[in-house]
Amino acid sequence: MLPDDSPQQQLPETRPGARSTDAPSGERRIGRHRAPEPARRGTRALLASAPARVALACGVTCCLGLVAFAGAHDTGRRGEPVSEVLADRAAAADRASRSLDRGASPVAVPVTPIPPASPSPSATGQPKPKPKPKKPARPSRPRPVAGLTQAQMDNAKVIVDVGVDLKVPRRGLIVAIATALQESDLYNLASDVLPESYDHPHQGSGSDHDSVGLFQQRPSSGWGTVAQLMRPAYAAGAFYAALAEVPGWQELSVTAAAQAVQISAFPDAYAPHEQRATTVVVALT
């Protein structure tokens, strides 16, 4: 023991409840006496603090408000509350979705089936039918035959055309042409006895009583008026009407049938004209 050491060591005065001013030892404490770790000043510590959370919430709210304001400005509805703009957009989207869901069903369009094309004769191996030769059209003025002039042939055509229209058999046409060849030589004649007959178109004149026209029919016998009998078509129709009243005229000879209608003083005078009359009728039918 050193000489200046007292038997009792001088200890600092301690008071009940007073904290020790001694520096903590480097020994690690365990449990609730564990020394607190210094606070971390990183990003997590900053976000964990209450002031930082408040500031972050305020920033997000401001950003959302700016986005809504910009959307309202883009739609041209500045000044309207953002809530109304968003509500209108939601309603428009709902209507669009409903219109798509309730679209009209497609209309059924009837389709007409196309019939299958019939195979051509060449495809089936059959020869093509030859086209029928076209019958040449008759000229308006027939070419004269049997030694007749054009005027005679024109008059003969009128007689034949009237008979065809009345459905007179060919033999009746031959009888009519033979009669006109004998009576007027197929010319439309006026009468010297009837001066008024010259007032109508004519191709010569005769002097056999009051006989006029192609068949030398007499107005005084009831065949018709002078004006009517000077028309070749009317004179031919009057002759066919009288021929139809002759019983069995189709079984009679040409000269007998003509005589039954004309009652001429020369009943056999019509026979020599039968051959020429036949040639004319064949050329005109």
Score class of each variant (00 low, 15 high):
Pro232Asp: 03
Asp154Lys: 07
Thr279Met: 14
Val282His: 12
Asp101Ile: 04
Thr179Gln: 08
Val246Gly: 01
Ser221Asp: 13
Ala227Gly: 10
Met1Asn: 04
Ala50His: 10
Gly59Tyr: 12
Gly172Lys: 00
Pro113Trp: 09
Leu56Ala: 15
Lys130Ser: 12
Val175Ile: 15
Asp165Cys: 00
Gly17Ile: 00
Ser140Cys: 04
Ala23Asn: 07
Arg171Ala: 07
Asp154Asn: 13
Val111Cys: 06
Tyr198Asp: 09
Gly59Ala: 15
Ile263Tyr: 05
Leu243Gln: 02
Cys58Trp: 13
Ser264His: 08
Arg143Ser: 13
Leu284Thr: 04
Ala241Asp: 14
Pro81Ile: 00
Pro169Val: 10
Asp101Glu: 13
Ala50Gln: 12
Gly224Tyr: 04
Asp4Trp: 11
Gly79Met: 09
Pro139Trp: 09
Pro121Glu: 11
Val212Gln: 02
His209Gly: 13
Ala244Leu: 08
Ala35Gly: 02
Leu186Lys: 04
Ala123Gln: 14
Pro115His: 08
Leu86Pro: 00
Gln203Pro: 01
Gly26Lys: 10
Arg138Pro: 06
Arg170Gln: 14
Ala178Met: 04
Ser97Phe: 09
Asn155His: 12
Ser6Leu: 15
Ser122His: 03
Ser211Cys: 06
Val261Gly: 01
Pro81Gly: 09
Ala269Ile: 06
Ser99Val: 05
Ile30Cys: 03
Gln203Asp: 13
His73Leu: 14
Ser197Ile: 07
Gln150Phe: 06
Pro110His: 11
Ser211Phe: 04
Leu46Asp: 08
Val54Ile: 15
